[in-house]
Design a protein around this nucleic acid. Sequence first.
DNA 1: AGTTTTACATTGGACGTCCGTCCAATAAAA
DNA 2: TTTTATTGGACGGACGTCCAATGTAAAACT
Lengths: 194, 194
Amino acid sequence: MPKRGMKPIRRQQLIDAAIASIHEHGFSSATVARIARKAGVSTGIVHHYFADKNDLLAATMRAMLDILRREAVERMRVARSPLERLYAIIHASYGDAQFGEEVFSAWLALYGNARDSQKLQRILFIYHRRLHSNLLHELVPLIGRERAQEAALGIGALIDGLWLRYALTGRPDDAETPRAMTRAYADAMIAGKS
Amino acid sequence: MPKRGMKPIRRQQLIDAAIASIHEHGFSSATVARIARKAGVSTGIVHHYFADKNDLLAATMRAMLDILRREAVERMRVARSPLERLYAIIHASYGDAQFGEEVFSAWLALYGNARDSQKLQRILFIYHRRLHSNLLHELVPLIGRERAQEAALGIGALIDGLWLRYALTGRPDDAETPRAMTRAYADAMIAGKS
DNA sequence: AGTTTTACATTGGACGTCCGTCCAATAAAA
DNA sequence: TTTTATTGGACGGACGTCCAATGTAAAACT
């Protein structure tokens, strides 16, 4: 069975299995054995492709962020104005790819357990900084640097908050409602006084 | 040393210790032994006052929600109009008592690990339902039932989102900024068309 | 008031379980 | 023959839970 160049395939399989496991039984029940079994491989293989369990978890989180990033880049490429690019970021933040229920709970679980590991904390910090920076970049030409700061904070928070609500109530099929609400909030922040 | 009626005292001590432990070393490192040691008691006592570890965790979460609830009730008692009561809910949601860094990370950790336990999930669900219901009750007389639904969802989400940001960046000293932003959002939702 | 009894508080370690990690062995492709 | 992929179990450690033993304050009794 063994062929060469299995590395990227197995890594992806294990990442997918990790997401599914966290979703099904929760973070603390997502053991190496369970993840391996769900991926259809033995437990030993995990440590052949990842340094340890935490490394797999970090890779899982990075993979989720990468989906998000790629979708945002793609959508911003075709946008032609700051407002359009702002909408693109908002649209991508509720991207279909990550609007699956599985990715939801996995993301949330890693959120809650980030304090355990320096690595996870760092990845999370990068996500926040990038989202804020992207929002800020489009907002500044619209409303100036000062008000853009607050607007970026608010829009980012609303994205996370709506996300959280949908993650917990488990209604991942409807991505357009939170998108429209976030756009409306952005409009209000842009039009609003001070 | 043992006196009668230690039950409420020890329970509170253990709950406080649980919050502190989760904050310091993360959720998965908050073992029964560590919590007990931080409370200054032996490990056995934990199972004398709580059914098991999960029961202690659930009680911890309930205690945090109770602080929130009491503060909201207190503030709404003196409010005289729907808008004032809406502001009271918003104010209480960033209450000083729970704006401590410790409570922050504990809350977040329990969020992320809610899927493990039916109990935690239920408590979290109750919190969301209550917040939404309270917001809705004050919004309906202002903008009608239909638009109130969306406004309540958005305000609740913004509260959670801003909370999350402050929890992760760890800046618990400034409670007034998120309050003002949430009030501004509420104003926009009330004034806005659609 | 002094003594006994009762009920509770508390300890600290034993027990069984489960987990992450490691490793020797095997198998297949190059 | 060499390299890579993969297995499955062994190992040590950590954790939650349980329990027998001990100490003490309060109540009951004489």
